[in-house]
Design a protein around this nucleic acid. Sequence first.
DNA 1: GTCCAGGATTCAG
DNA 2: CTGAATCATGGA
Length: 315
Amino acid sequence: MTPCAWSAWRPLRLVEPVPVGTLREQLDGGQSFRWSVDEDGAWTGVFGCTLAGLRGTDRGLEWRGLVGVDGTEAALLRYLDADGTQAKLTDALPWRSDGVLLAAIAAHPGLRILRQDPQEALIGFLCSSNKRILQIRQMVARLAESLGDPLGGGHHALPSWSQLAAASEAQLKACALGYRAAFLRGTARRLLARPRWAEEFAALSTAELLAELQSLPGVGPKVAACVALFGFGRLESFPVDTWVVQALAGAYGFHGWAPARLEEFGRAHFGPAAGLAQQYLFAAARADVLPMPFRAEASSPKPVRRPKSRARPRR
DNA sequence: GTCCAGGATTCAG
DNA sequence: CTGAATCATGGA
């Protein structure tokens, strides 16, 4: 049992202020599943092997770490994109000509893509299919608690692939994974044989990375896009989930479009930081603050049938 | 009790 | 290739 003592709260220097609402969306809005908040509004979370606390105050963002543990502040600065890369990319998004995006950014100013560990993103989104964020968080918490290494204060790191592969059926079942248990075991066994998988994946182009991720059991187009975005920092990756489908249908009029086609639109329209735009749209859709001029029509005649396939320029 | 969830997989057409 | 059934579990 490791004694746990928090350091005092200290200011965290970011290039842009983070409103408390944005902080909440960022830590508990479906990117990471490892943060929880107490009654005073103080967040506690684990990323990689770092245990940290965050809170928003009148004086700005503050952080704390475990006494005797070095590197917490540096890890937080990297995790939260303190160098301002995403602030610049946000400014380069087409919000000046896109009122939907403008409204989404205004709803959560300063929202960032968390720079997560690849394994953390992969485990989290392997659990994500057909589940709500709250339940994903519970699954991941149980995985860490029952299989991961202790970090102090009752918190645990996520299990390694070998720890996951070695887990018994009963242990996985107790994590309430449902049919996703087979996904986790399968992926754990595959990556256990490739100790440097994260480096190897990081060296791939984004298209190659997405294909490589999708070869893993339980990883389809959407999960692969999320892992590329959150775990490998591929900000051009544009995950299309149920919320984004609804947002693009209601706000842009793309009713009935297949996810692959919406993804194509997102990348073309939003450009190199499409994933960042996606996160703004996702958060705004969940908060129900997007302008929806094309909300699903109840009485109008059948929507115009759209061409299902495009001419393929491939050779 | 019913419905649905930051989907993936498998199978029928 | 597209669409539908199926998957296991818990919260609303």
